[in-house]
Design a protein around this nucleic acid. Structure first.
Lengths: 366, 366
DNA sequence: GTCAATCTCGCAATCGATTGCATGAAATTT
DNA sequence: AAATTTCATGCAATCGATTGCGAGATTGAC
């Protein structure tokens, strides 16, 4: 059955003018009486009268009009690659948790990690007069956001830093995470550790790979570039493909450190398909600690990133940029701590040599 | 290390007035020359000149100012319970896929299914002058959104319908989904089927329970109210608790139809903890087909809801409400089809009912 | 009791774009 | 050629709130 909607007349909006007429004072007085700051210079009884009338008439301030005059919309733009990626919703809730109490709303846009889409969206946000932008889209090179910042738009970036630009950035301690994971694996006796790296056009992919290389050498693990394969996307399919590549390279390894959880899940799945059990045959680790990981077997050992607090931090910094009279106080760099979460996907190296200088463990595959 | 941000002067914005000065025509002419509709009544050479100047100066229209005059912000509000719930991001992308090409942006708010928060957020959206609201927050009774609709605000609801209000709603074919699942289970030989129902203050929870009761009787399965337990939240913990309740009731059953996937996942987990294997001992089914289900063992048999297209549909209807001159054409009710996805968590009914403790031997119901 | 300082509030401009109406010129008709 | 229509553009009001400035009114000081 299909019923119809009837047309409805929009109810007239109550404005300052209505309150002014009602109370007999001028609209500017009404405006001041309603403004918690300007209120100081208004007689208590006028304030009383105005508030009474406002209440009675159901006055709601028109933010659009105020925004036109003050050039502030109380709106911020939030750019992310893709909201369906589970790591972003907690970030958004974190952002919201500081913005909403302050009366700010956010406009969220998905860039899909496409360069031109991203720069078009920056313009969309600017056209809408957002007071600032939180940029969590992971594309590394990005002229449009830098230009916006140069033009005076308050901007902070999350998980990424724009080179040569003076834009505050919040990043997670990627390197620390990689190091913790490597020493965890090392403690379990692993010496030949493979890495499934993330896309290199994303900063997380790049940072984690660089950290992997650094730590492997500084920890005196066997460093073999053939144990590094790079995924083109952060997803399970790529995790599978990279495992195939690792196995067919014939290089022996006893563990795979993956650049994120989804790669790790794909890797484990494919290992299983090839008759290799995790963690008995190969240990696999992830990164991010995304939701639902506790439901997937084996439970993944990973690095937890506090997405919610990253969002909070980004929003807090942006507020300081927007409202603070001394911008000098806003730190350019903020590094958030990460945490090693040991679960079931990592275990003792199967053929680990008793001494680090021993021979490599034998390959079990093929 | 902590470097500092330097203060930056906001670059002056180019306005219609600047273009008018540059081209020597009046600002109203500039406005018309730039408006694709009004453009008809302007000389081609003036249009040329104006567009040239606009291009050269880098003019970007001020939507705030336009919005004040036209009373349209090209913004819609989207209300959801919680963005971290994986079913909502696809809905949002669906909405965005319709809205963005039309020049609309959306403000997303999370209600956390709290009544007063929800009604406060309706006000927030109205204050911001959104042109319409898509309401996907599942609280069943809700005066504030109905009031907004009465005041002339275009509103559509998703996954829920506001009683007694003339608000177009989009729902999924919950009953059809339940029926499909029940006949699937019935085909597998199950006759005693338990139901873990969702929270009854959410419409999905309520609708699915009602459908379960209807279908069970109409399909002549054994109807036993003691095989129905109600969860207080849609999560794994509640799924576990409900399984405990079912098992301790001593009622025999061979399958559990759960009101959503998370309840099902919790149920399977707890069954396993009690020594019952899914699907060998008990079949379990979910609802929603949320992401990552393919990574969790056993792969869950469920009902797929097309979240993305639900979002698209909602947005399309809202656009019709906002822009159509005859609102009569907007259907009040839209029911979207669902699809049975058979995977590994359902199998042939075992002759014996589950016996967690082995203390009783259950007869099979007919 | 006069003058200055202070306080409260109104006036009017302003933010930038839109739009009904008016005007003068060009095009068309008679 | 005069009259009328059409057309392109300018004028000015408007949306609703904010805010610098100034006018009265009130208070206080000497």
């Amino acid at each position: 059955m299909v019923r119809k909607v009837r047309a409805v007349m929009l109810k007239k909006r109550i404005t300052l003018k209505d309150i002014a007429r009602e109370t007999g004072v001028h609209v500017s007085t009404v405006s001041r009486a309603l403004d918690p700051v300007e209120r100081r210079s208004i007689t208590p009884e006028v304030i009383e009268k105005v508030h009474g009338a406002a209440e009675r008439l159901g006055y709601r301030p028109n933010r659009i009009a105020a925004g036109l005059r003050t050039n502030r919309t109380m709106t911020v733009g939030v750019m992310i690659p893709d909201i369906t990626n589970v790591i972003f919703p907690p970030i958004l809730r974190g952002i919201e948790s500081v913005l909403e109490p302050l009366g700010y709303a956010s406009i969220i846009v998905n860039t899909d990690s496409e360069k031109e889409r991203e720069s078009r969206l920056v313009d969309v946000l600017r056209d809408r007069g957002v007071d600032g932008i939180i940029h969590a889209a992971a594309l590394r090179s990005d002229p449009s956001i830098a230009r916006a910042a140069e033009d005076g738009m308050p901007v902070v970036t999350l998980n990424r830093r724009v080179e040569r630009a003076c834009i505050p950035y919040i990043i997670n301690d990627e390197e620390g995470g990689i190091r913790q994971m490597l020493s965890h694996l090392s403690d379990l006796g692993h010496r030949s550790i493979a890495h499934i790296a993330g896309p290199q056009n994303l900063s997380t992919g790049q940072l984690r790979l660089a950290a992997f290389r650094d730590c492997v050498t500084s920890m005196k693990l066997s460093h073999n570039e053939r144990l590094v394969v790079t995924a083109t996307r952060f997803d399970e399919d790529e995790g599978m493909r990279c495992v195939d590549a690792l196995l067919s390279s014939q290089e022996p390894f006893t563990a795979i450190l993956c650049a994120n959880d989804r790669l790790a899940l794909g890797a484990i799945e494919r290992l299983r398909g090839r008759g290799l059990h995790c963690p008995t045959d190969v240990s696999v680790s992830g990164f991010n600690d995304m939701p639902f990981l506790n439901l997937i077997r084996p439970k993944l050992t990973t690095i937890r990133i506090e997405q919610h607090s990253a969002g909070r931090t980004a929003a807090t910094l942006l507020m300081r940029l927007i409202n603070s009279n001394d911008l000098e106080s806003v730190p350019i760099e903020t590094i958030l701590p990460v945490e090693l979460i040991v679960r079931d996907s990592t275990g003792p190296a199967k053929d680990a040599a008793p001494r680090p200088t021993g021979r490599y463990s034998a390959a079990r595959h093929t």
